[in-house]
Amino acid sequence: MGSLSFLYFGTVIALSAILVVALRKPVSSVIALLVMFFHIAGLFVTLHAEFLAAVQLIVYAGAILVLYLFVVMLLNVKEDDSYQRQFRLGMGLGLVALAEVVYIVSAAGLPEEPIRERTTSAAAAGNTEMVGRALYTTYLFPFEVASLILLVAMIGAILMAKKGIMGESK
């Protein structure tokens, strides 16, 4: 059951990920990406990480991707095949990545029963709480740094977009 659903979600994720870069229309790519996010969420659910699944949908599908759609529609991006000409480079990089995957898989091997024990304890306490605890204890510093980086990025973006906010307006 578990590996069956993993097989399904994994296949669809891989396929839709390929489609995201292979499709010519930007809007189709976005749709493919949406499908991919859903399946990643599904994958999380099979791992009993419901919180992550929900957050995946809310943040990625519900907000970020909509912004992508915005950009695609507002900029009215035409079918552009200029990216399709990087075929050789893409092939090369793809081969490297494939080799890496093959190496990792062959080196480590697929685990027979993935992370079963840990999930049971997580389900008991509610994974939301576990995530919260992990974030605010073990990973507090990275979490805060990440927040700070995001804040800096946001302020930087506002500064760049709003000309004259520093008083140099004319």
Binding site: I31, E50, G62
Partner: peptide
């Protein structure tokens, strides 16, 4: 009764925006 019920609702409500935006486009 899933343990992240409210998040579940929010997640799917946010998907509803796609219907509107894609329909419009």
């Amino acid at each position: 009764d899933i343990n992240i019920g409210i998040l579940y609702i929010l997640a799917f409500v946010s998907i509803g925006a796609y219907g509107v935006i894609l329909g419009g486009w």
